[in-house]
Design a protein around this nucleic acid. Structure first.
Ligand SMILES: [Mn+2]
Ligand SMILES: [Mn+2]
Ligand SMILES: [Zn+2]
Ligand SMILES: [Zn+2]
Lengths: 134, 134
DNA sequence: ATAGTTTGTGCGAATTCTTCGCAACTCGCA
DNA sequence: TGCGAGTTGCGAAGAATTCGCACAAACTAT
């Protein structure tokens, strides 16, 4: 009852568009709504961009996907289960590097202890200059 | 030669609009282009929004102002000299708290040592849930 | 299975935010 | 002063996201 019903289990109707949007996000990793739409169109050419936006929002509401801000512009989406790293974004070359979450563990703990603030380190990227661009 | 010529010293022409935009950013702290425009209009009613955008960009290019991302939307600007804290943004209540930069010092050092990545901790906000909203 | 209710979809238009093109203007320099 | 590059205002163009609405599809309950 897992695979075919995970959307129903969340109280959502199961439409081809919705399934495909979720599948696309899972396959693509970080992706913009536009990229998700392109991916979905490979098998469902008629899907409308607003349907993608609406489903991303819906899927985020039930916790199946999340959004992140990697650059100065819009958000990118990823599957909720693959929240395994933080993003190091270089302001010069635009490269996006990964680092394990535990690099930030002490920082996160400090914010929790000193400010009672529970940090989601991967919602916003960590911005700076990568080693190649120093 | 400091005060009246800081713009000239940076190689920029001195126009009323440009001076007022810089002054507005300094007085307002974090502010959107729209807020900067409103402030400037108090003394220079005719200023155009695109002039504000262009001057923010110009001033950023010479290092007098910087932009930050505090929320899911557009950027906010602040004077370069007041980069004294990082921002804790609560995803639930939208509150923006401050914390001294040195809370992040170890984290920044770790990224530098382990990845050669020079972090600008205040370009993006630190996102999470504040103590009131747990 | 069928009919009815509810929710989702496509489509086009509307918003919002930011950038452009260009003629008129003005700042700084000779 | 007077010229020439840099700036400004303005309207239009873009880009990204959201809305309104009629029609279609999915679930619910016969
Ligand atoms: Mn930025
Ligand atoms: Mn966000
Ligand atoms: Zn780089
Ligand atoms: Zn809060």
């Amino acid at each position: 009852m897992a695979d075919k019903h995970e959307l129903r289990d969340k109280g959502l109707r199961l439409t081809p568009q919705r399934e495909l949007v979720l599948a696309a996000v899972r396959e693509l990793g970080h992706s913009t709504p536009e990229e998700v739409a392109e991916k979905v169109r490979l098998t469902h050419p008629g899907i409308n961009l607003s349907t993608v936006y609406r489903n991303l929002e819906t899927l985020e509401n039930v916790g199946l996907v999340q959004h992140t801000h990697l650059g100065h512009g819009g958000a990118t989406y990823h599957a909720a289960e693959e929240l395994t790293h933080l993003h190091l974004v270089c302001g010069k070359c635009e490269a996006v590097g990964d680092a394990p979450l535990d690099v930030a563990a002490n920082f996160v703990n400090a914010l929790s202890d000193e400010y009672g603030f529970k940090t989601d380190v991967s919602h916003f990227a960590i911005y700076g200059t990568c080693s190649n661009c120093q």
